[in-house]
């Protein structure tokens, strides 16, 4: 079971490394969205500093959104998912591996490039570890919730836009706690509460979401 788990992650990472565009496009999207905000609201340092946490988090949400539609699509089209249903390993474990791979390929790069974008937005350097920490706790939740939407819309017409309609409302708590933690750390307020809530969110999606995703995959492949 654990071998299957690792194999799926290894396979997904290998495929993605051979088609680097899949990893890079959401990252470029992240960078472009962040670059658009100063042009839209004006270059004032103080204003940018106050809205930077919100911009970074909304951009991270949208970038994850962009990659979510593809999560199960290739495996759906080439029949891999049907093999998963027949596999001796529980579907939940396979789904968990798929999401871990997705996080490694989109969440992790997002966290790694976020400091550069934060500096562009004049976020204080001291706040960057907190930015990365909130993203570290928040992006897995985004991957899990996104996977639910992705599994529900497999093979459905117009699934790209549909997925964002289904999933973005579910993302609100992550945005609120992620961005508030960052803002709180900049103004010197206690941040532990937000981080605990984000961590609680991770635990919750880690335990509950795979079941919903497995159920959704069974419905979609019926």
């Amino acid at each position: 079971m654990f071998a299957a788990f690792l194999n799926i992650i290894k396979r997904d990472v290998t495929i993605a490394l051979r088609r680097r565009g899949d990893i890079l496009v959401p990252l470029m999207f992240f960078a472009i969205v962040v670059a658009l905000f100063p042009l839209g609201v004006g270059p004032e340092t103080t204003l940018l500093k106050t809205i930077a946490p919100g911009i970074l988090w909304v951009a991270a949400l949208l970038a994850t959104m962009l990659s979510i539609g593809r999560m199960f699509r290739d495996d759906y089209q080439d029949g891999t998912l049907e093999q998963w249903l027949l596999a001796p390993q529980p579907l939940v474990v396979l789904v968990l591996a798929k999401i871990c791979a997705h996080w490694i390929l989109t969440g992790l790069p997002l966290i790694l490039v976020s400091p550069i974008l934060a500096i562009q937005l004049h976020l204080p350097l001291s706040a960057i570890p907190m930015l990365m920490l909130t993203l570290l706790l928040g992006t897995p939740i985004l991957s899990f919730l996104g996977a639910i939407g992705s599994a529900l819309t497999l093979g459905v017409r117009g699934s790209g836009v549909l997925v964002s309609l289904l999933v973005l409302p579910l993302y609100t708590p992550v945005l609120i706690f992620g961005a508030s933690a960052l803002t709180a750390s900049i103004v010197g307020d206690p941040v532990a509460g937000h981080l605990y809530l984000l961590a609680a969110g991770v635990v919750m999606v880690l335990t509950l979401a795979p079941w919903a995703i497995a159920g959704a995959l069974r419905v979609s492949l019926d």
Binding site: L166, P169, T172, G201, A212, A216, V219, S220, D222
Partner: peptide
């Protein structure tokens, strides 16, 4: 929107039900 975009009513029913259950868990959190 999810219901409207799935043609097979049985699949639409079950997919929408899963979404509604996920939503009801998330609603108090929101």
């Amino acid at each position: 929107a999810l219901r409207a975009s799935i043609d097979d009513p049985r699949r639409a029913d079950r997919a929408a039900a899963i979404l509604a259950v996920v939503g009801i868990v998330d609603l108090p959190i929101i």
